[in-house]
Write a protein that binds this DNA or RNA. Structure first.
Lengths: 321, 321
DNA sequence: CTGAAAGCGCTTACAG
DNA sequence: CTGAAAGCGCTTACAG
């Protein structure tokens, strides 16, 4: 008696359930929405009727009536190759999907590559088609965040959004401390000439991880030598290039802290090409704790911690709130 | 005058547009749906009114009325770690999202890990919440395909679904020919002891790529030696293990055709550990043409072709069809 | 606790 | 070409 989508049999509605249960549609609806003000007997009747008819709520009708969409957007505002290449992205996407599914909230995946996309999507999102937005972007000056914020759209950013007048809630890795842990690990293993390949230094992930690195060196009584530091962009290729620069400037390197696992892969490639063994000659530590890293040939050493920061103005709230 | 989602100002409706344009709601709606039976003058008036009011269609209302949802599900029915690790997955996901966006069709991402998930999602999907399903799963005996098919849900599978009573449309790589190209390339480069690491041999991706490999060897007058063939599961780790087996059985190997880029990474790792240079001592060719591969240290050699196969019973159709 | 009824915003025959 | 009106399936005050 299941309802078939493409309509052989008309899908059962709340009306059918009501008739079957011998109650009014209002009662069925109340049962569906928490069962408040529904007698136990009526509740049982409705439940049975739902089972018999194979009723499934029509979400469009519900949304029209309530004004909620009961869905959330996962918005990528990027030159997307970067993010799709990033193993963190998958972890994030999976985690969001799974947890929303638990609340019966579908995840709409949206990509904004061009400015035209950005405008179109901002319009779409603020038109009430979703109840909230998870914003994922690597460059944190993203205008979309500000626009969505201005339109009053509930929003959580992944990564600390910089230079944003209106503050937004965000979730980010504890960059400084994660870096500290990893560099500390290298020091404890006896490494003394520890280089670093940073992320872009105009982003918190770049500066904060560098800060953690410097701190630990200082604490360990090791010199901070700028010849040992090179900047990358988190991509694999940039890691490879940065490693070459580092090797030229400091051939006696015995370890490198790399600000992303993806760059770390490039670093390992480069070191192999230069005939250095890893970690024999040079230890390599990558930031991210990504699946890629845990599976990579020299196994991982780090596990960054995560912290949730809610801005005072816009506390994280559930879409259903 | 933009409509704000969380309701400071009530979002403008078709009604507001009609009033503003001096026409009826029916005319506005007709304009919105292709502009048939709308005079040029009325069309202009409506267009202007839409701009002035900042009107955006309420999709829930539209869906309730039309019975269409104008959305498509991207369904992953897997032990998901596997797929999320697979670089092909991202390519697929991005391509689908981008192309659907062009038709204003949002992509709902859904993951089915457990059987409970599978039941829940099948129910959700067949309840008419989406117009069609893109089914992504690696083991092709997936029961979900059959269920969705039986419920009359428009469906396209990624990869050839095996052993499915009801045939479904699918899109798949041209496994045999892609393999042929790559192995031919290795032969042309003068390699003579070419090994292969296959995918699971109970799937077309496993058997067909192996078939392509055998064919080219035969054509090139090279012997087919089972000692040179090992089976993997497409994962990185399995590539590493298979490479070790191969090296033990055939130390004089001078090339390996690997049935996935991910396994190929594992192979390269293993070869390095055994002190073999790549591609100096041993050439490695991976199937997939994934970003990972194109960026990897020994650069790529292959580019599999794609073929679209529509089953006779269920021709691929657009959700709007 | 329960029912009758209005209303959410749109589309679509149906008359003109 | 255009308007008036019914209808999509649900929720939610409002009376009882």
């Amino acid at each position: 008696m299941t309802a078939h989508a493409n309509g052989r049999r008309r899908a059962p509605t709340i009306h059918d359930v009501a008739r079957e249960a011998g109650v009014s549609r209002g009662t069925v609806s109340r049962f569906l929405n928490g069962g408040h003000h529904v007698s136990p007997a009526a509740g049982r009747a409705v439940q049975a009727a739902i089972r018999r008819t194979g009723y499934v709520v029509n979400r469009h009708a519900r949304s029209l009536s309530t004004g909620r969409s009961d869905s959330v957007a996962f918005l990528l505002t990027e030159p997307q190759e970067k993010l799709f290449e990033d193993p963190n992205f998958n972890v994030l996407l999976r985690g969001c999907t799974e947890n929303l599914a638990r609340h019966d909230i579908p995840l709409l995946l949206m990509l904004a590559a061009s400015d035209a996309d950005r405008r179109r999507l901002t319009r779409y999102l603020t038109a009430g088609h979703v109840d909230g937005v998870l914003l994922v972007s690597s460059h944190s000056g993203d205008p979309v965040a500000a626009e969505l914020r201005a339109a009053g759209m509930p929003l959580v950013a992944c990564g600390k959004p910089m230079g944003l007048g209106a503050r937004v809630s965000y979730v980010a890795a504890d960059d400084r401390d994660g870096a500290r842990e990893l560099v500390r690990h290298l020091v404890d293993r006896g490494r003394r000439r520890i280089g670093m390949i940073t992320g872009p230094l105009d982003l918190p992930g770049g500066t904060d991880r560098l800060a953690g690195y410097r701190e630990v060196l200082t604490e360990a009584g090791l010199p901070y030598d700028t010849a040992l530091v090179a900047e990358g962009d988190y991509g694999r290729a940039s890691g490879e290039r940065a490693a070459c620069r580092l090797l030229r400037r400091a051939p006696n390197l015995d370890a490198v802290f790399v600000a992303s696992d993806l760059m770390a892969q490039g670093v390992v490639n480069a070191l192999h090409q230069y005939g250095r063994s890893v970690p024999g000659d040079i230890a390599v530590g990558g930031f991210d704790d990504s699946p890629t890293a845990t599976a990579a040939s020299p196994s991982r050493a780090s596990a960054p911690r995560w912290s949730v920061c809610s801005s005072p103005r816009s506390p994280a709230r559930t879409p259903r709130g």
